[in-house]
């Protein structure tokens, strides 16, 4: 137990089920992993893989009545699942904070960005008006916004997408959280701006000694910036391990398919991509077997009726869920 309390985040058998008109939808279906302090991990998956729901559930944002959350999320030893709104609110901002894909949705369009940071500081940390403003400008500077005194009075609509995302990061960092959940933080942004934001996150992580969870569909985003990767498919973890191991020594066919189907800058032009047929399954109609089986070329009858659990690979911490794993050879990603 004491070992677990050391850890920043321990997720155990976490399941999030939405009750919809069409039936129960297991968006996250039994996920377990843990996370050390000062670490960056990546959660990768296609749409419908449950990566966004997972990060929101960790944050404790699911409160609608038609949702059931089971399992456990221990955040620095505190159980988030089933905690009261008050208890959760106390931890939001100081323990855990979140940034979203579209910065416009998390910013109030009719309020000056500086005031939005101020508010957090004054309400949460009880700062005085003057202190809060000074700190807000400091934060804007920290996230790399040029001439922060001037930008303090800007409205979100007057800023570019990249600048807005920086403001959102500043708000998230206002109360120095231990853990930052970043849900597709760069998806809507241009490549050069994306690189700026990712560098900023990495730099802030070092400087503020926090941990970051990067949730993304883009393998390129996590390849060089995380120490561990979780690959999700149809609401479950199908492979987890150190970034290097997942890229070079993956055992789960889906991981390979995902890697091989993404086009690479280093490919010659007109390179034919390896594809997986079909598309991710309908979560309302999941079978007892492996959810990837219908698209998998290695699938056997066993795969279709019995779901594989995560099993340990050779390298410590590397696990995969597959009945017919790929052989233990190290593959090079580069062609």
């Amino acid at each position: 137990m004491s070992v677990e309390q050391e850890k920043l985040l321990v997720v155990k058998d976490l399941a999030t089920t939405f009750h919809t008109a069409g039936g129960d939808l297991p968006a996250v279906g039994g996920v377990s992993f843990d996370m050390e302090r000062n670490q960056t991990i990546g959660i990768v998956g296609e749409s419908g893989s449950g990566k966004t729901v997972l990060s929101r559930t960790i944050m404790g944002l699911q409160q609608r009545t038609n949702v059931t959350v089971t399992g456990s999320v221990l955040l620095s030893g505190f159980e988030m699942v089933g905690a009261s709104e008050d208890d959760k609110r106390k931890r939001w901002g100081t323990e855990v904070a979140m940034i979203f894909q579209d910065p416009m949705t998390s910013l109030n369009p009719v309020m000056k960005v500086g005031k939005q940071i101020d508010e957090t500081l004054r309400v949460r940390l009880g700062m005085s008006k003057v202190d809060a403003k000074a700190r807000a400008i400091e934060l804007l500077e920290l996230v790399g916004i040029p001439s922060p005194q001037y930008r303090y009075d800007a409205y979100p609509g007057q800023l570019s997408g990249g600048m807005r995302q920086r403001v959102v990061i500043a708000i998230a960092l206002a109360c120095s959280p231990q853990l930052l959940l970043a849900d597709e933080p760069t998806t809507g942004l241009d490549v050069t701006i994306q690189a700026q934001i990712l560098n900023l996150l990495e730099e802030l992580k070092e400087r503020l000694e926090m941990s970051v969870v990067l949730v993304t569909h883009d393998l390129g985003v996590v390849a060089t910036r995380t120490s561990r990767i979780i690959v999700m498919y149809a609401g479950r973890i199908v492979e987890i391990g150190s970034t290097r191991e997942v890229f070079a020594g993956h055992r789960m066919p889906y991981t390979r398919a995902l890697l091989e189907s993404s086009p690479k800058v280093s490919n010659a032009s007109h390179t034919r991509l390896t594809t997986i047929p079909g598309r991710p399954p309908n979560l309302l109609k999941l079978t007892d077997g492996c959810s990837f089986a219908p698209r998998c070329s290695y699938a056997t009858d066993k795969c279709r009726v019995e779901r594989p659990e995560l099993q340990a690979a050779d390298e410590p911490g590397h696990m995969f869920a597959c009945w017919n794993p790929l052989p233990k050879t190290r593959r090079t990603v580069r062609k």
């Binding site: 069409g22 047929p277 079909g278 598309r279 399954p281 309908n282 109609k285 219908p294 698209r295």
Partner: peptide, 10 residues
Amino acid sequence: LEEAILVEKP
């Protein structure tokens, strides 16, 4: 395959 998957979308 598309067929198998499409039928599921009601």
